[in-house]
């Protein structure tokens, strides 16, 4: 039953993604990408990744939708109808997809407890967290304590991106005012 729900949600996400390829209205595209985020948050809960689901719902469906809405408000609301040759991209993705599917054939089946991913270091963290960190949530323990330096690095990445956004968009209002003045006088 759980597998059936997982596969159903997965199919819904794929269908939404395919709808995004054909829709011209950018507002609808942004909303559908929010839908994908929410559906994947549901899927993460089903696959036991509650912390990830939390972040995806807040960041993916919340912040990124708001940022994209801001962008379409500043740029344009519809994708222009420009004829392109789509045969080459289609051939490329079908080929890449087939290669990837060929790669998955040797993977352990979904949820197998004896797959290589479960039998190495993950089990050690589960066994040691209670004694060493004294909190029940293992994901938090790994994120903030065992791999705290990685999280510091992540914060650096976010800071750099924020700096980039400020440098790119800083003074935009002043520039547009100046342009308007030049046009008038």
């Amino acid at each position: 039953m759980e597998l059936a729900i997982t596969l159903f949600l997965f199919c819904a996400i794929v269908a939404t993604a395919i709808a995004i390829t054909t829709i011209r209205s950018l507002f609808a595209v942004v909303m559908l990408s929010g839908v994908i985020s929410l559906l994947s948050a549901l899927l993460f809960v089903l696959m036991d990744a509650v912390d990830v689901a939390f972040t995806e719902a807040a960041v993916g469906a919340g912040i990124s939708t708001v940022l994209m809405l801001g962008t379409i408000a500043l740029t344009s609301r519809t994708q222009k109808d420009i004829k392109r040759n789509n045969l080459i991209p289609l051939a490329v993705i079908i080929l890449t997809g087939l290669v990837l599917i060929d790669g998955t054939l040797d993977m352990p089946s979904f949820g197998a407890p004896d797959s290589p991913a479960q039998t190495h270091v993950g089990a050690a963290y589960i066994a040691r967290t209670a004694d060493e960190i004294h909190i029940p949530n293992i994901v938090t323990a790994v994120l903030a304590s065992y791999r705290g330096y990685d999280t510091l690095g992540e914060v650096t990445v976010v800071f750099t991106a924020g700096l980039g956004v400020v440098l790119l968009l800083g003074g935009m209002g002043a520039r547009s005012r100046k342009r308007r003045q030049e046009e008038e006088g």
Partner: peptide
């Protein structure tokens, strides 16, 4: 059934790649 997940993930990934390659709108 045990590998369906991986195949759906491949389809989803390739849909994303297709949008990046075949659509000219930067937001898309």
């Amino acid at each position: 059934l045990g590998h369906m997940n991986y195949w759906l993930f491949v389809v989803l990934m390739m849909t994303g790649l297709y949008i990046v390659v075949a659509r000219g709108n930067l937001l898309k």
